Simulated scan of single mutants.
Amino acid sequence: MQLLGQHHVSIMTGQAEKNFDFFTRVLGMRLVKKSVNQDNTTSYHLFYGDAVANPGTEVTYFDYPGIGPSYPGVSSISSTSLRVPTTASLKFWAERLDALGIHHAGLSARAGRDVLAFEDFEGTQLVLVADNGEAGVAPGEPWAAADIPLEHAIVGLGPVTLTVADPKPTALVLTQLMGFRRIGAYPSPAGDFAEIEVFATGEGGSGAEVHLEARPDLPKFRLGRGGVHHVAFRIPNEEEYAKWIDRLAASGLPNSGRVDRDYFRALYFREPNGILFELSTDTPGFDIDEPIESLGEKLGLPSFLEPRRAEIEAKLRPLAL
């Protein structure tokens, strides 16, 4: 019973159209599902991923027009990484971002890997990380965007960074409950603070890592546009999912219990510093209601919302993508 790595990361946006433009045209990712927030069906939920919507490649956005800004701080998922094939890819992306007028921090290294940090138009902290043939969780399949060579395309999620006031209780949940293992640490970019600890699960590699940063000097994070709502980790199938439900129940941590999202089964809980974690199955996938070839082209609704399609569509604002 082992988590395989990152499944998806979900973030807030106040401008879904501009968000779509950024992720599909600037970053060259594929819109693999256009759906609704199942807990608030008046809000869109957009999923960006690789060419075939593989688990472990999706960045998702909840659309809330007019939402206020996020305020950085502790109890947050402070950065999200996206995998690219090589260091040469990072050089391509640095030149591309420069040409588009998007500020970036230049090539640097984190946890022994070459990286390129930047942010989107709403302040989401993003990091491109080079695989460079590293062993571990396999990358996804690159999507053929018009002006991005396949050899430099984004191929999945890399490490997420958790920023907390006290790392010890979070580390215990990662290792004792979730089965992660501590594999090292690296200096914090913030300077005179503790090292950032690196935890891995499954086969390891950048697609299966959590980086844990202690910043007791910071205020508490406030979620708004550009802020990360939660991170989800991969469960291979529904048989394993049932075991994780039992494991969470036995741990004593409050949790959601079984949640059926149709495209995957989910289980939610907050670790001791208040960050929302989700455990999600790889199955059945995003192609249960539309073929791979036309993913994201229509409004996808889970089967339990399909009878309400007319009502839901009537209440959604027009979305021109």
Rank of each mutant, 00 (worst) to 15 (best):
T163F: 07
E290T: 14
T161Q: 12
M178S: 02
F193I: 10
M178L: 15
W244S: 07
F264T: 02
P85N: 00
F233I: 01
L301H: 00
V74K: 14
E209I: 05
L223K: 12
L212H: 05
T86Y: 08
L3S: 01
A144V: 06
L248M: 15
D63G: 04
G257V: 06
F118V: 01
L253C: 15
G296K: 03
D39A: 07
P318H: 00
E197M: 05
P272E: 02
R182L: 14
G106V: 03
L100P: 10
E239Y: 08
L299M: 02
P55H: 07
H152F: 12
R308W: 13
L97M: 03
P189K: 08
D282H: 10
Q6E: 10
D147C: 05
A109N: 10
D147K: 07
N255M: 09
S78F: 03
H8D: 04
S188L: 02
L90P: 13
L31D: 12
D50V: 04
L116N: 02
A138R: 11
E17C: 01
L253G: 13
G226T: 08
R247K: 15
R222M: 13
G140F: 08
G300Y: 14
G28N: 05
I275C: 09
E119D: 15
E290Q: 13
V137N: 03
P55E: 04
K91Y: 11
V59C: 04
L172H: 10
E58P: 09
D287C: 12
A266W: 04
G28I: 06
V115H: 10
L172Y: 04
R265N: 14
L299D: 03
G202K: 01
V259Q: 09
F92L: 05
A190Q: 13
A153V: 09
T13H: 07
A310C: 05
P254Q: 15
E141P: 08
R30V: 03
A190W: 12
I312H: 11
S81V: 09
V74H: 14
F180M: 06
L276E: 14
G66L: 06
A117Q: 09
K220S: 15
G73L: 04
S79A: 03
A117T: 12
L100W: 02
A171M: 02
P291K: 02
A310I: 03
A105Y: 06
I292V: 11
E141C: 06
